[in-house]
Design a protein around this nucleic acid. Structure first.
Lengths: 343, 343
DNA sequence: ATCATTTTCGCAAACCTTTGCAATTCGATG
DNA sequence: CATCGAATTGCAAAGGTTTGCGAAAATGAT
């Protein structure tokens, strides 16, 4: 049972045993119409017997194409990307593609190096969630020029030269705002992320607009938190501070929600009696609390699926530049009282 | 700016422009001592200019080796595997390897298909966390026989034919038990996972032993929960039931902890005054609560690093069969009162 | 029996790189 | 001047598969 290292069977081996040519064997195994049915049968049987498995390296060299999709994300863990990858993998697998996962660690240089890896491995396509510090897109252009389609997701560049797919930030923020308005709260503390990120700006604008449309903009206190901890201290300050205590908390993201909930627990307030909470979230954190937090779901899994779909289009047709969004929905929990539940 | 599709530069192109042979160019680019310094310089310059990037397919075919490591997990998301992958990717990248991620979705057939994919792609090695339903290991043996090292992690087979690396379940359970004993609680409800899983049995045995060693086994009520929801209802039942209410809760895993905390919140008990809590966890969920939950950390990241290390040994030397463990540590939160903190 | 088709199969090039070995040059030494 | 050694470079095979095109065999029609 020591490592036997049986030599891999090749087309040549099969062809010799059957006294056929390599090309005939090759065609027989892929059911080419030129080959007689009887020959095919014999070939298939021997191939099975010899446990023939085609040499992917040779195929790739010959056809100059792989079934590997490069995925570059700032980090795999965290609140979002792992579920994106899960959804993407499902979809990719069903089309016969596999995933090569690269982390950029929020470092543009590593990002570029990873992109280079994708080129070297002749990836069939690349999916990228940008680093927050990425400014130079030339490497991506170079990759696209060399025939590898590049699709951005989640953290996308500003310009419109590439196809990209994101959550519908506008819709998500609007849904959350409307849910808040319908719940009849009177004093909202809304915490958003780093204003430098486009995702923050989009959500903020839509959120404000919804309140403005209802003529309720005066209810709104808006803060920005770059981290979980900052979100916590901002919230705590507001909850236990001098002024009138807000009766509703909105968190733009999971990271911020985590900070807010910490503060709520610290101040020993009860949800939803003392304060109501709503967030934009993947849904995992909201499910941990009792009552469960109401949230607008930004589902990584469906974003993954959609992203593959867009990339897949790039394979066949001319690249469909533009941006796609995947829709979101409100998942009512018990943290927003008195609300006429959204449809 | 339309897709230019410039043809990729090859060694041949460079050799023609420089009037050298292909082999000379090849050697020059890899700094072979046979080649004159001046020649190397010229070659490097032109290669740079032509944006030459070696064709990985050809190299792989020639050398019959790739820098791709297959990773097969039941699911990427969830409580654990994504951080494992994150740690693994870090380590692999630093050695020049990339990751091919495959999900088995807890289906042994998909698992086998994924394994086949690894063989077809001639992965340099494969890391596997088994499905809970996997019984047939023949495919793994076949893969190992064909020269691809297989290392199991987390969910490992019973036999000892493969190298494998796991968290130190024994140590984790012992640490948790000792922390409980030191905290001076008197009535412990300990919730473990499905008794069919080896991880459950290992943790259970060590946990019990620690109590037995202290002569405190009588404190212990042990339950098994196969899901978050079952953990919740078991806990709730115990907390609001007839009998004496336990004053300490132990959760064997994150999934169970999630259920327990739901129940604790439902019963409106305060931590740690009314009840103390400790878990074996990655640390994410514990960090969401206030006070933070004390836990024994089973760190996916370091398991990922360690796993790569073991796999990496398989590349060079003869396969080091046996099982390795990565050590764990107690991370004290505020959920276990009165405890002399562990060192 | 001849010719035209159709069916079935083989030849050989191409994909690009690596590498053992042979070949060439050049200066130096005997 | 012949010989030798070292420093450079080239030749050619190998790795396994795909595929256009031509060749051979079988079939059918006349």
């Amino acid at each position: 049972m020591m490592s036997m290292q049986k030599a891999k069977a090749t087309l040549k081996h099969i062809s010799e045993r059957l006294d056929l040519s390599i090309s005939t064997v090759s065609r027989a195994l892929k059911d080419h119409p030129d080959i007689a049915e009887q020959t095919k049968r014999k070939v298939r049987e021997l191939a099975e017997l010899m446990e023939y498995e085609p040499n992917a390296f040779a195929i790739q060299l010959r056809t100059n194409a792989s079934r590997l999709i490069g995925v570059i994300v700032p980090e795999i863990s965290g609140f979002f990307y792992h579920s994106f990858i899960a959804g993407l993998e499902e979809e990719a697998r069903s089309w016969g593609y596999s995933l090569m996962i690269l982390q950029s660690g929020n470092d543009p240089e590593r990002e570029a190096a990873n992109l280079r890896l994708c080129r070297l491995n002749r990836a069939a396509g690349v999916l990228v969630a940008l680093t927050s510090a990425t400014t130079d897109l030339s490497q991506f252009e170079r990759t696209a020029e060399s025939g590898i389609p590049v699709v951005f997701f989640d953290k996308v560049p500003e310009g419109r030269e590439f196809p990209m797919v994101t959550m519908s930030d506008t819709e998500a923020a609007r849904l959350a705002a409307e849910a808040i308005l319908q719940s009849g709260t009177r004093d909202v503390l809304a915490i958003f992320g780093d204003i430098g990120l486009s995702i923050t700006r989009k959500r903020l604008i839509a959120f404000r607009e919804a309140f403005a449309a209802a003529g309720m903009e005066s209810l709104l206190a808006i803060r920005h938190a770059g981290s979980r901890e900052i979100a916590r201290s901002l919230t705590l300050e507001s909850l236990s501070g001098e002024g009138p205590r807000p009766d509703c908390l909105f968190a733009m993201s999971d990271e911020i929600l985590a900070g807010c909930m910490k503060a709520v627990q610290q101040s020993r307030l009860c949800i939803p009696q003392d304060i109501s909470v709503i967030a934009i979230s993947t849904g995992f954190i909201p499910s941990l609390f009792e009552p469960e937090i109401s949230y607008v779901q930004t589902d990584g899994v469906s974003l993954g699926r959609k992203s593959f779909e867009i990339l897949h289009r790039c394979f066949s047709k001319s690249p469909p530049v533009g941006d796609w969004t995947v829709s979101v929905r409100l998942v009512p929990g018990g943290s927003l009282p008195n609300g006429r539940q959204a449809v």
